[in-house]
Computed example of a mutant assay.
Amino acid sequence: MAVYPAPSWQHSADPAKDSEFYRNQNGSSFILEQIPKGEKFEKWSRLYAIAAVKVEGLTLKDFINRSLAPFYNACGKENFFVTPLQQSAESVLLHVLCQNSPAGPAKFGYGDGVGEITVMRFGQVGSTLIKVYQHWRGKSFIATDTSTWPVPKEEVGMMMNRFTTIRFVGKPGR
């Protein structure tokens, strides 16, 4: 189980008033995604999600690497930056910048001229691996120039702070 904060755009006590939802569970994997009310999952500006998978033998490090691979592939080495913000044996908080996604799938809103910023928190409870993340997508940008980002740096900073409060709880080995 994970205890996690609300997305950056949520302003009411009722998440259904502020968000559209997508939920899917398939065997040992689960995902719940939220986007701002009125946006479409085919073309969102902000996406918040929690995903979990139970896989025997998959390490937290492997789970993180598998989660980052699509970014690396879509963005390319020259456009992809990852900064660890917090790390322990059970949890990792990352800031991911993709200044441009020239190899990203257009059918999912990516491609040349599209960039993305992500804050991701990974954790593990027994053999269940969990990630909570918020993406911001918009025009391509310069990673070192926050004035070009598709989201105010204050909003990203707010979510970084919120993500430090995420807790992964459960009985070991389950």
Rank of each mutant, 00 (worst) to 15 (best):
D62T: 06
D14E: 14
F168W: 10
P150C: 04
N100K: 11
L85R: 11
N73T: 15
G104W: 00
E90W: 14
K77R: 14
G123W: 06
A143W: 11
V92E: 13
A103V: 05
V55C: 08
V114D: 00
A2G: 02
L129F: 00
A69Y: 04
V151G: 01
T83I: 07
T59G: 14
D62M: 05
N100L: 12
P84S: 13
K54C: 08
I31Q: 13
G115P: 03
F21S: 10
Y72M: 10
T144N: 08
K37C: 09
D62I: 02
K54R: 09
N161A: 12
Q99H: 04
V169G: 10
K107T: 15
Y133N: 02
I117L: 07
G115W: 00
C98L: 01
A89G: 13
H135E: 00
A89N: 15
T144D: 12
I50F: 02
R121K: 10
A6K: 15
V82G: 12
K171C: 06
D18S: 09
A52H: 02
K61F: 07
E155M: 08
N73C: 14
K107M: 09
R137Y: 01
D62Q: 14
I31P: 07
F30Y: 12
F163Y: 11
P150K: 02
W9I: 06
H11F: 13
S28V: 09
A52K: 08
E90N: 15
S88Q: 08
R23H: 12
Y133H: 02
A143R: 04
G126V: 04
Q99D: 08
C98S: 00
L93M: 11
G104C: 02
G38R: 07
L94S: 13
F122K: 02
V92L: 02
A69T: 11
G27C: 09
R46W: 00
V151W: 05
A89E: 10
W9N: 06
I31H: 03
W9D: 06
V125L: 03
N161P: 00
K153A: 15
Y48L: 02
E154I: 09
M158N: 13
S140H: 06
N79W: 11
L68D: 05
A143D: 04
L68T: 04
Q25W: 09
K171W: 08
I166D: 07
H95T: 05
A106Q: 03
G76W: 05
R174M: 13
V3S: 09
K17M: 10
R46S: 05
K17N: 11
W9C: 04
P150N: 05
P172Y: 06
W136Y: 12
K139H: 09
H11Q: 14
M1D: 10
G126P: 01
V125Y: 02
G123V: 02
E33R: 11
F81N: 11
L93T: 05
H95I: 01
Y110P: 01
M120C: 11
G104N: 01
K153Y: 13
E33Y: 14
Y4S: 05
N79E: 12
F108C: 03
V92W: 04
S29H: 04
G104S: 02
G173K: 11
V55N: 15
E155F: 03
V169H: 13
F30A: 08
Y48R: 01
T164W: 09
F30W: 07
